[in-house]
Write a protein that binds this DNA or RNA. Structure first.
Lengths: 351, 351
DNA sequence: ATTGGCACTCGGCCTAACAGAGTGCTAATA
DNA sequence: TATTAGCACTCTGTTAGGCCGAGTGCCAAT
């Protein structure tokens, strides 16, 4: 049997070549691609009839399909998958574009929340789709200072400052009123004990001391530890997800229907679901591409997600990427996401 | 001349009655209303032909118009205006609904940001349109405490706490490094001088002292005052605008076109424009209704905004309302907005 | 002032006809 | 054996015509 025999279940090189051409064309025009068009598109000098034979094979293998008898072919999900995994040729960004991204991200002035927002906007601006940046594992932070202020009605305002300069504050409800002196005493104790320690360590120490402290410490100290535990926990739990350029997706509404778009937007404002979705890619290396239908998520039908994790000081802390229609220009989007993740990592590292 | 003569430029009572019936019908069905339908709708036992005469008059006066020759009539902007200003009969909410609103708003636990968010969601939920709540003039706040923490690179973290328990923090860039002792000294001075004072007074005092202080104070104190001024200003400038249920508007997309909707959404995420728009109604008394086309704002074509200001301790601090299609059920929306504003005021007062 | 009647108009829907694009298959070809 | 030309077929989208229903404006009658 000849190497390229069509009866092979393996996709022949030539078939792959045509699949690639078809998908690239379909991504450009958004319309089913016919044999005639494809014959002109590929360099090879072949007649439409030949192409038709190959297309029939591809269809049999489930890589393309026709919407109806006399339309051209459209890639299927598995077709896209093959394209993404082994066929596409990413275009490198030129230096000018890279510089533009770097400059934009520098603008934020190192303020982490600002920078993440910039990154998200940048992604959406460059790709004309929705940009998203999550920050899940917070930068390893160190305890710097804690303060308690008495409010009325058995409430205490706790303020926690990290070495990075982040401020967390929260109102705690206590079982009795504390006066300022008591609270100051508690804060002093905590500040002396924990200043400079890693937040994770602080949490453990607090728990530990809380366990074997009943007899050694007085009531106030026990309370202080409880409160410290509460706010330290709260400061860790904070998860972030910045989405920009949602409305860019409206231009693809003709494809996906309005109802779908609405659900997607609702998910964006809710954020939790998106966050959960992207967290799957936290531990992945480099750019990951994810076609909506591949997850059970009804939400993302017709969409693809291109993501890459980013780091702060060598440690992955979040994921960034874009969400757009499955018919997106992967060859361009991939390097954009890749580079943005790298530059973001670099910008955040400095600090 | 008879009292109700049609040749009067004043709209006769009967004509007004028909206008009202027409608009109410149009609001229900969304389709041009013909003379036959209208004849049945109104209690009066009149033939379609008579109605047609009246409609012709209304059309001449610019209160209604027909999309084309053989369609019914549709209210014009001025028609809506007359309806809103003098024709509509607001339906009072029953106690059950009022209680539901009160309960929802109580849930936030008095945390002001939480409550505003609830209010916005509530408005959008009840009306099936977009809810919006702005907070522009902050509750009169009193200075409680300020702290400065040294960061690296000539940066200082300033934390300002108000009597209400709100925490504002900001990173200040200074012209030289300060050590902790210097900053503590400065903070102590400020805390002693200003604790309990109204924030507005603090701002003035700071400015004043800054002016005539050059000789009396040392460098550190001058700096402290400068920094205090910066953060006090920043804490005032913070404006808020919570929008919920944007996506409800997508159901009216068939009417307004997709492009319009997109611009509207972009304005929502930008927020500034919306904020500016609603601030016009800060000083108005009670419910205000605003038809999109009446302002030059291209954005709001086809939309109406129903707003009411709300207070904290008798003082107006913000505006709340809903944004929806001009064809909205005013007779129901108005009392909802009205009551929500009142309840919100009551809930915020407690604290 | 109101009404019935009548001619007229216009959008929406259905149908038929047609052009265009593309396919699958078969037979010829290199 | 792989490729090609040719042909019949299928399906979509558009266009034109016809008809129905809803509604109007106007006139004459009440």
């Amino acid at each position: 049997m000849a190497k390229n025999s069509f009866s092979d279940t393996v996709v022949s090189d030539r078939a792959q070549h045509f699949l690639k051409a078809l998908i690239e064309r379909y991504i450009r025009d958004g319309q089913p691609v016919g044999s005639r068009t494809l014959a002109k598109d590929t360099g090879l000098d072949l007649s439409p009839a030949t192409i038709r034979n190959v297309m029939a094979d591809l269809e049999e293998m489930g890589l393309v399909s026709s919407p109806h008898t006399s339309a051209g072919r459209v890639p299927t999900i598995t077709g896209y998958r093959m394209f993404i995994d082994s066929l596409l040729t990413v275009q490198n960004l030129n230096n000018q574009e890279v510089e533009k991204i770097r400059k934009e991200l520098m603008l934020g002035g190192g303020e982490s929340a600002e920078v993440l927002k910039s990154a998200s906007q940048l992604l959406s601006g460059v790709t004309h789709m929705a940009g998203v940046v999550t920050l899940t594992r917070r930068d390893k932070t160190s305890f710097r200072q804690i303060e308690f202020l008495p409010l009325s009605d058995r409430r205490v305002l706790a303020i926690l400052v990290t070495e990075g300069g982040e401020v967390h504050n929260r109102i705690l409800h206590t079982h009795r009123d504390f006066n300022r002196a008591e609270l100051d005493q508690a804060a002093n104790f905590l500040n002396k004990s924990f200043a400079g320690f890693d937040m994770e360590v602080v949490r453990q120490r607090v728990l530990q001391q809380l366990n074997d402290a009943r007899e050694h410490f007085d009531q106030v100290m026990t309370n202080a530890l409880t409160m410290a535990g509460e706010i330290v926990n709260a400061s860790e739990a904070k998860e972030d997800c910045v989405i920009a350029g949602q409305t860019n997706l409206m231009e693809f509404a003709e494809l996906s229907g309005l109802e779908q778009l609405r659900k997607l937007f609702d998910a964006f404002t809710e954020k939790r679901e998106i966050l959960h979705l992207l967290d799957q890619f936290l531990d992945a290396e480099g750019v990951q591409i994810f076609i909506g239908e591949e997850s059970g998520y009804q939400l993302l039908n017709g969409c693809s997600v291109v993501t890459a994790p980013y780091q702060v000081n060598e440690e992955v802390v979040g994921v960034l990427g874009v969400i757009g229609p499955t018919r997106m220009d992967y060859e361009r989007v991939i390097p954009v996401v890749d580079i943005t993740a790298k530059i973001l990592s670099a910008v955040l590292k400095k600090h």
